[in-house]
Amino acid sequence: MSEIKNKLLKPSKATKQDRFGRRISVLCIGLIVILVASIIFFIATKGMATFISNHVNPIKFLTGTDWSPSQKMTGALPMIVTSFGVTLLAALIATPFAIAIAIYMTEIANKKGSKFLQPIIELLVGIPSVVYGFVGLTVVVPAVRTLFGGTGFGILAGSIVLFVMVLPTITTLTIDSLNAVPSHYRKASLALGATRWQTIYKVILRAALPGIMTAIVFGMARAFGEALAVQMVIGNSALMPTSLVSPTSTLTSQLTTEVGNTIMGTLPNNALWSLALILLLMSLFFNLVVKYIAKRGQLK
């Protein structure tokens, strides 16, 4: 056999390297998948314990309004309502601002304007949530107290803090979706004599709608899962909110405050894991919604 023939039929260093490389990268990606699976598995098992070993009725858990697990009262509705309340309110306030900034940056501003805004938005993403919480505690809560009475703690303060926190998330994703609208849409509309606002309103925003909705869902997911900033301004009493300024508690704030004060395996502790399970399920739900929007967007 010739030398070349010999070489062509034998595995070389390269063959081994390739096998090695593929194994390493499969291992890494496998680790991540296993991690996700075990997070879901552990939180789910722990969260189900309330219903399985403590025999709490899941319907009662979700609809009960009295939360005092040490006295066997496990109505999680106050936290659920508050979590949804701050999330929806924050998204509601943030969305118009986010869309305005996105329109300004993609359709109106010259280069200078967007160059000025871009780093500000990036910086906002970077500010740690405890800093938001601290500013909320020292500025927002007293302001709410002065303007609306009460202690100042509550859904309103929480929503204001979350509004600023989710603003950059919604804004950046909205900018991306506006940028993705093909420029000939704009040209065609303007060529037909439409004003800039008509073009934006009737053509661009409509074309970008799925993207904007995705942006809002991502913003809501962030708001729903935020723990410390909310915990610092919400009041932390597990009571049904009676107004926007009554102290209450979200799922996350309840978890943050109480996990350290309960003993593993007891009902008070298990009940908290059930709250964590609700958080996890909601996070999965937000993911599903994003997928659904993306799929519908493709069909069109």
């Binding site: 991540i32 991690l35 996700v36 997070i39 879901i40 939180i43 991502f218 997911a221 729903f224 899962g225 935020e226 723990a227 410390l228 996350t252 978890l255 943050t256 964590a276 958080l279 996890l280 996070s283 999965l284 937000f286 993911n287």
Partner: peptide
């Protein structure tokens, strides 16, 4: 990976 990135950090 998407799920992991969207999980609340408290979870």
């Amino acid at each position: 990976i998407e799920v992991l990135s969207s999980l609340p950090s408290i979870v």
